[in-house]
Design a binder for these strands. Sequence first.
DNA 1: CCTTTCTGGACAACTACGTTGACCAGTTTA
DNA 2: TAAACTGGTCAACGTAGTTGTCCAGAAAGG
Lengths: 139, 139
Amino acid sequence: MAYRAMTEELHAVLAAEGREPLRPAHGYTFRFLLDRDDVSIVDLAAHLGVTKQAASKIVAELEGWGYVDRRPHPTDGRSRVLGLTPKGRSYVDHANEQWALVEDRWAELIGADRLEALRNDLRAYVEASGGRAALRPVW
Amino acid sequence: MAYRAMTEELHAVLAAEGREPLRPAHGYTFRFLLDRDDVSIVDLAAHLGVTKQAASKIVAELEGWGYVDRRPHPTDGRSRVLGLTPKGRSYVDHANEQWALVEDRWAELIGADRLEALRNDLRAYVEASGGRAALRPVW
DNA sequence: CCTTTCTGGACAACTACGTTGACCAGTTTA
DNA sequence: TAAACTGGTCAACGTAGTTGTCCAGAAAGG
């Protein structure tokens, strides 16, 4: 419920700004592309825990909105390199700021030290059960 | 990720026992029926955050597997009262035990006091944002 | 080299699980 | 006692994933 409530709080803010109807999958895609500049559709699919076909659809949407572009791979003629456009980059920055505000409100509630402890405790569990869980919820 | 990992751990155990392919929605339904004995389809739908049609389908499945039954309402001729069968009840007990084991392993990792603190901190956030979040994830 | 095998990606058809819409029988209100 | 409301079902549709098939380019083996 906490996870849901936080996500909803963020999406409510973004939706109120009249953005495209972005879903969590888009957010995870943004973050993944932000760090790296050699991501293929297959890489993204593995990261999201979906098939490459599904990843392809997601990218197609984001490309249509001008957040992501596909450039030809420098050496591999089959592959395309995914990247954020300037518009995509500024969107991520904005979303990160809003997310920080959500966390801040929580920190006010329970204390920054408790929030930090919580982060560590959650991480401990995830790492103990294989390092990474799939992002996509079951239900 | 922690939420996902815990859910997956539980479902892996249950699936290994050769159970029907139960999904989180079924688990939430079980818990809801366990506490009360005057639940209608509409009540369940509200609890799960889905339409009554969707709730009806879920109940139909559970009824088919013999976990849930629908009895006529004592006074209201339109309504049906949902309830767990003995089989359903024993399943819930079993699942609860397994869930406790999952939590225990976490408690060993970070300490029982930290787990308790975490529970409280999560609850604090959920209650601050409206008391209850929808169970069903967005993605 | 040139053939065989492998891999990134796209298109199409299908499935799961929800939705909206229409309806009926029974209950409540006026 | 007629009108409005409510619990439940059936049917049609939508969304977001899946599997299945294929192609062009890359890697591997004689």
